[in-house]
């Protein structure tokens, strides 16, 4: 395989890793807990900014960009900090925004939160350099591994894959546990879940915070690879791409979310790159968004459960009685 192709494919794999992580995070919130988080992208952005600032070092007056803080933290720490930043932001937004509103009002609150975040980051130029964003973020471990550009690409693919695996283990552990069952119960019928003694507020916040942490981590992986990040990269329609991905793949199951990430943000948006350019500039971009919108509608119409539908869970009709070894029933 030629170098150019290797470069291209490794880049795609890294994007795939980022999108799969993000879709798992969103799926935890939307697919499992039923939270319509239209501000999902800001948690990815928070992680990206955190990771960028923590690797860029202190800004000097001669620097072309201004930002708050700045440090040269060694490799795993910026990624960890990004996840923490995503989680903290989610805890803050969730504590204020996750009231018991009807689903469409909740979506609206989150949409507005996303717009406010964009407005604040763009206007407060001292925070993370406003609309121009941050640039020249150094890639992690470059000084340690001593690899050429191509080999480093593949090294980063491996790193992304490892982090994906980590996220999968976390998400799988949650969704397969009684906690995951509680989340699904809440999604299906919130009053019933509450009546059975589940603390619905806590469950929603838990899903929101874990999803936020995963989004933050995905942002860190993305920014350390791209080495630049600005408000243009996280406008609210980007959240919609992830929603479409989760719906197309199949919400409420992790395989479905991963399939959606492969199909929508990666395969579909990349395939357009191979079309011969036509029309005035911006036309292809516009058509891409039209098709993303149509894709979401078509899937909600024909396959609302997605390509990989959520497994229908069956429970035995009679709950087997406890064996004597369990001791007396409490």
């Amino acid at each position: 395989m030629s170098g150019a192709w290797q470069f291209y494919i490794s880049t795609l794999l890294i994007y795939l890793g980022v999108d799969v992580m993000a879709c798992w995070g969103l799926n935890l919130q939307f697919g499992y807990a039923g939270l319509v988080n239209f501000s999902f992208i800001i948690f990815q952005a928070a992680g990206a900014y955190t990771a960028a600032v923590l690797t860029l070092g202190r800004p000097t007056p001669a620097d072309f960009q201004t930002y708050v803080g700045g440090a040269h933290w060694p490799f795993p720490l910026p990624f960890l900090a990004a996840a923490v930043a995503g989680a903290l932001l989610a805890a803050g937004v969730g504590a204020i925004g996750l009231r018991r509103l009807r689903a469409d009002y909740e979506a609206m609150v989150m949409l507005v939160v996303s717009l406010i975040a964009t407005s604040v980051v763009t206007n407060a130029t001292g925070l993370v350099n406003g609309a121009n964003g941050l640039d020249l973020v150094p890639p992690p471990l470059l000084g340690v591994v001593h690899l050429g550009p191509l080999a480093y690409q593949w090294f980063y693919v491996g790193l992304t894959a490892a982090l994906c695996l980590l996220v999968y283990l976390v998400v799988h552990r949650i969704t397969g546990s009684p906690l995951g069952r509680s989340l699904r119960a809440m999604r299906e019928n919130e009053p019933a879940a509450a009546a059975l003694g589940r603390n619905v507020t806590q469950l929603r916040l838990a899903a929101f915070v874990v999803g936020g942490a995963i989004a933050g981590l995905s942002g860190a992986v993305l920014v350390q690879f791209l080495s630049a990040w600005s408000p243009g990269a996280w406008l609210y329609p980007e959240t919609f791409v992830y929603f479409t991905a989760v719906i197309v793949g199949g919400s409420g199951n992790n395989l479905g979310a991963a399939v959606g990430a492969l199909l929508v943000p990666v395969a579909f948006l990349e395939a357009v790159r191979f079309l011969p350019p036509f029309g005035p500039p911006g036309l292809i971009d516009a058509i891409q968004w039209i098709v993303i919108g149509l894709l979401a509608m078509v899937f909600l119409w024909f396959w609302p459960r997605g390509i990989v539908p959520e497994r229908r869970r069956r429970f035995p009709r009679r709950i087997p009685s406890r064996s004597a070894a369990d001791g007396p029933a409490r």
């Binding site: 939307f30 039923g34 319509v36 009807r102 689903a103 469409d104 979506a107 329609p237 919609f240 929603f243 719906i247 968004w289 039209i290 993303i292 919108g293 149509l294 979401a296 509608m297 909600l300 609302p304």
Partner: peptide
Amino acid sequence: TRLFGMIIVTLSMGLV
């Protein structure tokens, strides 16, 4: 289509 499905539908329509 349930409540949050309809939000996605109207938002898609707006984008289209």
